[in-house]
Simulated assay, not measured.
Amino acid sequence: MIKNNIKNIRQRILLATERCQRDPKEVIVLAVSKTKTTSDIKQAIAVGQDCFGENYIQEGVEKIQFLDNSDLTWHFIGSVQSNKSRLVAKYFDWCQSVDSIHCANRLNYQRTSFQKPLNILIQININNEQTKSGVSLEELSVLAEYVSQLPYLKLRGLMAIPALKETYHRQLTIYQKMSEAFQELRNTYASVDTLSLGMSYDMEAAIIAGSTMIRIGTAIFGSRIKE
């Protein structure tokens, strides 16, 4: 199932990029493996998937340690709790959910000089939803400037989880706002190259708007929760 699902995702990317005349190689698939087993992850690895995203720190660390594969890239995409930020800084390659100077400072302090800089995406709350984390577009420039100066972090771009809108057009309009912010950031910082936007149900609109990374969970692994 997982093999066929990944094949289907790649086909969807191909069709979406053809519509907007983009190279499909510009779009990275991040397999969201939260609550999934290492057996599931191994099935994805077997067909060439090498980027995985985890929402829960302890669960993610256990998988990273168990699989012990330097060819894999691990993204933390959940909320960074202060008491567990050390684990994000130590074990993950990317953190996609930085939303404050305090969070950035902790990750920078806890990342060791023996590791490569931790790749950082700033999370944007594009709809200003009270139930979601992230900074507003108005706050972005200050946080981006701060992160860019920290020695053990590397600013790579933006991430957002926009609310699902009633129509494709309204969804695309929100995503285009994110793309414009990403392009402005890219023009300011040479290290910026990643817009993490789009999931299983909305990846086409995200790709057409300019997303370079889509976070796919259900469409790869299904909705089964591990026991």
Rank of each mutant, 00 (worst) to 15 (best):
E62A: 15
K63A: 08
Q65M: 11
Q65S: 01
Q65P: 01
F66L: 14
L67P: 13
L67H: 06
L67F: 09
N69M: 05
L72Q: 08
L72A: 07
L72T: 10
L72R: 05
W74S: 05
W74K: 02
W74F: 09
F76N: 05
I77S: 03
G78C: 08
S79K: 13
V80Q: 01
S82A: 13
S82N: 14
S82V: 03
K84R: 11
S85A: 15
R86S: 12
L87A: 07
A89Q: 06
A89D: 00
K90M: 11
F92C: 07
F92H: 00
D93E: 05
W94Y: 08
Q96L: 07
S97P: 03
V98P: 01
S100W: 08
S100F: 09
S100A: 13
S100Q: 11
I101H: 07
H102T: 12
H102L: 13
A104Q: 07
N105H: 10
N105E: 14
L107D: 05
N108K: 06
Y109I: 13
Y109N: 15
R111Y: 11
R111G: 10
R111F: 06
T112Y: 00
T112C: 05
S113V: 13
S113M: 07
S113W: 02
Q115K: 15
K116A: 12
P117D: 14
P117N: 06
P117E: 13
L118G: 03
N119S: 14
I120W: 06
I122R: 07
I122T: 08
I124V: 12
N125Q: 09
N125R: 12
N127V: 10
N127G: 06
E129V: 04
E129P: 09
Q130K: 06
T131E: 14
T131F: 04
K132Q: 11
K132H: 11
S133N: 15
G134P: 06
V135G: 04
S136Q: 09
S136P: 04
L137D: 08
L137Y: 09
E138V: 09
E138F: 11
E138Q: 14
E138L: 11
E139F: 02
E139T: 10
L140A: 00
L140C: 01
V142P: 04
V142A: 14
L143C: 05
L143G: 04
L143S: 00
E145S: 12
V147S: 08
V147K: 01
V147Y: 00
S148D: 14
Q149A: 10
